[in-house]
Simulated scan of single mutants.
Amino acid sequence: MFPAHPNRRGSSVLLAGASAALLLACTSPPPAPAAAPPVPPKASTTPPAAGNTGPAAPRLVVSAPIAAALSTFTKNGVTYHAVLQKATFTYDDKATGTVPLKLLTADLDPLALDATIRQGVCSAQGSAFNEQTVDYPYAAVMTRGASLDAVAGPDRKPMKLRAMDDSGTPNQSVFSGVGKRSIEMAYDRCVGGRKADGPGHRLDTYLPDGARIALRPAGSPQALSLTLDERFVPYILLQHKGNRWSAAPSRIVLVDIDAPTRRVHVHYRALFRASPAIEQVDLRALTSEAPAGTASDSETPQAARKRTAALLAHLSRCERRTGYSEPCADIARPVPAEALR
């Protein structure tokens, strides 16, 4: 038997994402490296957590086509925040071979935040268990209507896949084979609101931007290689006291693929310590439609490209976290001035 998700229990979700609309704090966003997304988000403000005696929860500003929520949890007496994220993609129904995933900037699927959705249940919004678990140390892939052949990084080198099984709670998957960790995380067997075809697979690490997922659709002799856009890079920009800024990448923790409907959800996490207090968290994304290098009226295209390169270089240097906070979320690792507008 595997441990229940210790990271989810006791956490409180403070701000929920919305379907076909994004949530944005009522204050104006700070100067930042990314241009505004194609679809303007709507306004909302993060409410304080009931009974929270620690630092006040920061405002969450969503400036990317991603459904998102801020969750607060405590581990070993230390309070942390997690930005839960779900991006929705699709792909061409007549595509063959290598197929790029297309980011949807409207008709977004919301996060499954209903506290009444039971563990192991695939609700209309998806799995509440998967989407509210604050910490996954690796990524998993679930499929419906297709079998998973392989996963490769942007360098096309195969990544280790570990087949999960159903040895745990009903309708949940966990890896229990040779090489299992002392604590293995579980996943509901859900693809959106439908049950996955099998237990799925997990990797030994997070799925990188630009990864390739090789599928074999049911009844088709041809395999598909779904490709995540390397130019879609979600990240968080944190405002610290004194108007100082840090930035950290969002990590891919789950991909669920519904081959019959060509709907793909990519789930991300970004974790950081609650203290010292963070005033605002801005969820942003570099995209092919709205790159950080998009020139504004006050800068040249060359300056915009330089700013994008500086931001990407900073994010690429952010080592993988080993605890519950991204190292680059610390103000001791500020965003380079050349990455800010």
Rank of each mutant, 00 (worst) to 15 (best):
A259E: 13
T261L: 10
R263G: 02
V266A: 06
Y268F: 13
R269V: 09
R269C: 01
A270Y: 11
A270M: 07
L271H: 03
L271S: 08
F272C: 03
R273H: 02
A274E: 02
S275N: 07
S275R: 13
S275E: 11
P276Y: 09
E279H: 11
Q280R: 15
Q280Y: 12
V281F: 01
L283P: 07
R284Q: 14
A285R: 14
A285T: 06
S288V: 04
S288Y: 13
E289I: 14
G293F: 09
G293C: 14
T294P: 10
T294Q: 15
S296L: 04
S296A: 06
D297S: 13
S298I: 04
S298L: 15
E299W: 12
E299A: 05
E299R: 13
T300V: 03
A303Q: 14
R305E: 08
T308S: 11
L311A: 03
A313Q: 12
A313F: 01
H314R: 10
L315K: 11
S316A: 14
S316R: 15
S316G: 15
S316C: 00
E319R: 11
E319W: 07
E319T: 08
R321G: 00
R321Y: 00
G323R: 10
G323H: 08
G323C: 01
G323Q: 05
Y324Q: 06
Y324P: 06
E326C: 06
E326T: 04
E326R: 11
P327C: 01
P327T: 02
P327N: 03
P327R: 10
